[in-house]
């Protein structure tokens, strides 16, 4: 099976007041296409740092990171933006929808930055909204939606650019347990359709429902287990 992404000896050091903080000390793992991974660990374990690197928001100090076969560890800001626009689908803890846009316009945003506006993108984005169960809320603004609904919009948005993988940062952190259940079911059904999903979380409920759990501790991989 081909790889969605591969991480090789990835390290990230921060320099704070002449003191070097080694947030990530050389992490290696593969994520095959169609995998469903949770990255866990206590705070300070390097979770957020790894998330930023996987999300192509930051540059590693050393090591390598491949998306499919392309190395993207040393790209500049502009090139990283292109990679984010084309190949990564983000889902955030606090939904991060743009308040002045409607549901369907929010879903369109990644397409806009991809550069190639297809003429049928509006209907494509409507389909995505219907897929996450919000076909009747297309013209609503984020403030008119519940937390669970907003997260569904965010998931639809992460699918818009047909990414290599979906990167979710504590996607259920702000949700009650019933909604958490719904959202995880949505992720599961997406994974069944072949989507690669990486969730960064500290919730055991999430961990219990994914295929594979990578635990970090002090910037290194503590364990890598398949459920």
């Amino acid at each position: 099976m081909s790889l969605a992404l591969r991480v090789e000896e990835l390290a990230k050091h921060y320099v704070l007041k002449s003191e070097t903080v080694r947030a990530l000390r050389g992490v290696s793992f593969d994520v095959p296409e169609g995998d469903y991974v949770a990255i866990m660990g206590p705070s300070g374990s390097g979770k957020s740092t790894l998330l930023n690197l996987l999300g192509c928001l930051d540059q590693p100090t050393s090591g390598n990171f491949f998306l499919r076969d392309v190395s993207i560890a040393q790209l500049n800001d502009n090139q990283r933006s292109e990679v984010r626009a084309a190949h990564i689908g983000f889902v955030f803890q606090s939904y991060n929808l743009i308040p002045q846009l409607t549901v369907v316009e929010n879903i369109e945003v990644p397409l806009y930055y991809q550069g190639n506006l297809a003429p049928d993108q509006r209907s494509y984005c409507k389909q995505l909204a219907e897929m996450v169960g919000l076909g009747d809320r297309l013209r609503h603004r984020p403030t008119q939606l519940s937390g669970g609904q907003q997260q569904r919009v965010a998931i639809a948005r992460s699918l818009a650019n047909n990414p290599y993988f979906i990167l979710a940062d504590e996607p259920t952190g702000n949700l009650d347990s019933a909604t958490t259940h719904d959202i995880l079911s949505l992720f599961e059904s997406l994974n069944e359709q072949g989507k690669t999903i990486v969730i960064v979380t500290h919730e055991d409920e999430v961990a219990s429902r994914v295929k594979r759990v990578i635990r970090l501790r002090d910037g290194e991989i503590d364990s890598d287990t398949r459920n």
Partner: peptide, 10 residues
């Protein structure tokens, strides 16, 4: 921040 994460260039 959101727009940058979703692929907006500077």
């Amino acid at each position: 921040g959101i727009r940058r994460a979703l692929g907006a260039k500077r």
